[in-house]
């Protein structure tokens, strides 16, 4: 009977149903495995927005070596990235570009707001060309305070993000 049903037209439906059943059965461990994979391959997109990028660069220097925590130096295409580290001040000219970069990245994606400027505007709270924080344009996962944050602080922020991803529900089928 199963043989009759398994025509090429219906095969897709069966496979899909099978996937659903599988996901229900092993969704939790699978989600855990997927999240585990995501944690150790966070790729930041290369978008420098202000002076905090100096300390971001220092974080991948041999002394701090952020790569040992699975966060890779930011030199790739944004289509392969899943992390935006907003490195400081966002001006009115940069804001649409930042959003454009975020929109072009594939799911899942995470945002770290680095520096006082990215959080509230910082020193430039009263400037005419600076956004008071990036909450209005991006959903932020982790805030890393400081002006600029020391590389250790940035690394701690990244570890916090990994902790957060671990507890998130992984969407296995998007």
């Amino acid at each position: 009977m199963l043989k009759d049903l398994l025509t090429p037209e219906t095969a897709n439906v069966f496979v899909g149903k099978l996937g659903d059943i599988l996901e229900k059965a092993i969704g939790k461990p699978l989600g855990y495995a997927i999240n585990w994979g995501r944690i150790w391959s966070l790729w930041p997109v290369h978008i420098e927005t202000a002076c905090c990028s100096v300390e971001f660069g220092a974080a991948s220097s041999p002394r701090y070596d952020i790569e040992r925590f699975g966060i890779i130096e930011a030199f790739g295409s944004l289509r392969q990235c899943d992390l935006v580290v907003v490195q400081g001040t966002i001006t009115r000219k940069m804001a649409p570009r930042l959003r454009l970069v975020y929109d072009q990245m594939p799911e899942p994606k995470y945002v770290i707001a680095m520096g006082a400027c990215a959080i509230t505007g910082g020193l430039y709270f009263d400037s005419y060309n600076v956004l008071p924080g990036i909450d209005g344009i991006l959903p932020v996962d982790v805030y890393v305070p400081g002006c600029p944050p020391r590389p250790e602080t940035l690394i701690q922020g990244c570890l916090l993000l990994q902790e957060k991803i671990k507890r998130m529900k992984a969407r296995t089928i998007v």
């Binding site: 202000a50 002076c51 060309n129």
Partner: peptide
């Protein structure tokens, strides 16, 4: 230029 013009 001008992406970091902060009006100093």
């Amino acid at each position: 230029p001008g992406y970091v013009h902060r009006g100093e």
